[in-house]
């Protein structure tokens, strides 16, 4: 199946930043090989979920082919269905991985800790000020 590739001129609808361009476009890939693990991994999150179109920048045809390829590769154990992410305690860092995926929360008893970094930051700031004045 040949994916039609038209560059959309209207990227004003996108909030902030420039229009995402799929790797498939920038590397001119016209057949998504389900054996190409390294390519497919770029369309998966670190928990091995398939990235959404709004994250990957695929058009619908590309997304369908990528999804199909990833699922084929999973059946043949080339790619994982899931992969656990090791959690570090404390505030989860909000990195640029904006695929809307829920990062594993720190254990329950540390739920109140989420506020602590904020107060900590303020505390150190005021201390700094005191030091400068003194």
């Amino acid at each position: 199946m040949k994916a039609k590739r038209t560059t959309k001129p209207r990227d004003a609808s996108r909030r902030g930043g420039k229009k995402k361009v799929s790797v498939l476009n920038s590397e001119k890939i016209d057949y998504v090989d389900w054996k190409d693990v390294n390519l497919l991994r770029r369309f998966m999150s670190d928990r091995a979920k398939i990235r959404a179109r709004r994250v990957s920048g695929n058009d619908s045809q590309q997304q369908r082919e990528i999804a199909r390829a990833i699922k084929n590769a999973r059946e043949m154990a080339l790619l994982p269905y899931t992969s656990r992410v090791t959690t570090q305690r404390g505030r989860p860092s909000r990195d640029r991985d904006d695929d809307g995926e829920r990062r594993p929360r720190a254990p329950r008893e540390s739920a109140t800790e989420e506020f602590e970094p904020l107060t900590d930051v303020e505390g150190t700031e005021s201390e700094d000020v005191v030091e400068v004045e003194a």
């Binding site: 040949k2 016209d30 084929n72 043949m76």
Partner: peptide, 11 residues
């Protein structure tokens, strides 16, 4: 396991 895939003619 095995997997048999029909390749598109272009490919």
């Amino acid at each position: 396991r095995h997997k048999l895939i029909r390749l598109p003619d272009a490919e």
